[in-house]
Amino acid sequence: MHVTHELELFPDHRVTQMLFKEVKNAAELRQCAVEGKIKGALINPTMLVNPFQVLVAANKAVNLQKIGKMKTRSLYSEIIFNLSPTNNISEAFKRFGSSDGDDSVLVVLVHDKDEPQLLSDITARVSGRQVPAEDVSSLTDHAKIKKLYKITPQEEKCGTLLDAVVCRMASKDIL
């Protein structure tokens, strides 16, 4: 169900993504994350094209954490911030973070090799149906993403929507 990737740059770090549909307690989950009871990032899956997008954000967050250059207060808020094409933190949370009324959520965890405890903790807290993390592509709101990242029709001719999104995420701090 979940997908776990090793970060090649940081071999003792793994990124796990878990996708839930028909979520009934989004508000409660968000509160838990704010209070630090959930050690993970809660993301609005309609703003995601592919799990790779989350990996790019997580890798950048871990790198910035290691060199002490994070823009936000925690690794998990940094992941959400990195997904956004702009440098506005509150807007990033609003667009990419989970909102109280959402009925789906993608949970991102960064951990070392051992994870079963973490995963079961998340599944216990979420009242919803877990689906394969790859299914995030079926929830994507293409129109909203194109508008937010300002992706032109000509750009889509030379690559996928994912390519365009990843390029903007990687280059946003120099624009």
């Binding site: 032109t152 000509q154 750009e155 030379c158 390519d163 365009a164 990843v166 280059s171």
Partner: peptide, 10 residues
């Protein structure tokens, strides 16, 4: 890339 010219993704 924005202009539709193929270049590697960053």
């Amino acid at each position: 890339r924005r202009a539709g010219i193929s270049a590697p993704v960053v």
